[in-house]
Every structure is written in C-alpha cells, then in structure tokens.
C-alpha cells in the first residue's frame, strides 16, 4: 500500500525522457498511455459495462440471425433480409462502440477526467425502436 502511494505521489519523468516501465503490457501502454492507474473498482466496473454492451451486441446478432432463420413465413423476403441485416449491423456497431467506450472510460479514469457520454446508447435506442416498428408492422399486418 505504502509503496503504491509513493508511486502515485511521485512526479512524472522530466520532459523528453522515457517514462519508466510500469509493468503494463505493450498493448495496454499503446491504448492507454499516460495518467496513472485508477481505483481498481473503476477498472472492474468499466469491464463489466463493456461486457454488458457486448452481450447486447450478441443479442442483436442472434435476433437478426433468428429473424432470417425462424420468421420465414411472417415477412416478405426483402423486408426480412433488410431487418435481419439492420439488426446484425447494429450489433456490430454496438460491439465496436463498446470497445471505443471501454478505452475512453479507462483513459478518462487514468487522467482523472469526467467519464465520456455513451454515444452508442442513442444509436442503440433508435436502431432498436426502428427494428421494433418494422417487425411490429409486419406481424400486425398478418
């Protein structure tokens, strides 16, 4: 604990000098440069949030695939394919956005900056609503 406190309190290297090796992997240093290790609870919470977004993305993928596989009799073929592709593409977008957000939150926490607004949330809301309207229309139309 004491050693960690000393590490946190110590000033960074003078300008132009290489930072000391901090025990992190090369990939972590590349994606999350600068700052200092945040509270471990923040890192773990960020990871859990990322996983929740990934599961949402997987649900969208599975929904799109299921639409094409199970709902053959409910939709016209072009509409079915369009909605299925839209849901899967939305899932891919959410997945990519989840990673961008994970990096953004981790960087903000390292720099003691405010947590960025989740931009994928409105995208998911709009996409989900649009998909629900189209699917609802075809189901109600019979």
């Amino acid at each position: 604990m004491g050693q960690v406190s000393q590490q946190r309190a110590s000033p960074g290297p003078p300008e132009g000098e290489q930072p000391p090796v901090d025990g992190r992997g090369r990939l972590a240093r590349l994606l999350l440069p600068g700052g200092e290790e945040p509270d471990p609870r923040v890192t773990l919470a960020n990871e859990r949030t990322f996983l929740a977004w990934i599961r949402t993305a997987m649900a969208l993928l599975a929904g799109g695939i299921a639409l094409e596989a199970f709902a053959v009799d409910v939709f016209d073929e072009p509409a079915r394919k369009a909605v299925a592709v839209m849901l899967i593409a939305l899932g891919m977008l959410v997945s990519g956005g989840a990673f961008v957000r994970w990096v953004g939150v981790e960087r903000a926490a390292r720099e003691h900056q405010p947590i960025p607004v989740p931009l994928i949330a409105p995208v998911l809301g709009l996409g989900g609503a649009l998909g629900a309207v189209v699917v609802g229309y075809y189901i109600l139309r019979g």
């Binding site: 604990m1 960690v4 992190r24 992997g25 990939l27 999350l32 609870r41 990322f50 990673f99």
Partner: peptide, 13 residues
C-alpha cells in the same frame, strides 16, 4: 482490489 492497484488488460475486450 486488495493491492489497490489493477492494470486494465485490453486483450479480452
């Protein structure tokens, strides 16, 4: 958590 220090691992994400 016990050590109050955890490095984020980007490999899994």
């Amino acid at each position: 958590i016990r050590a109050e220090r955890l490095t984020a691992d980007p490999v899994g994400p």
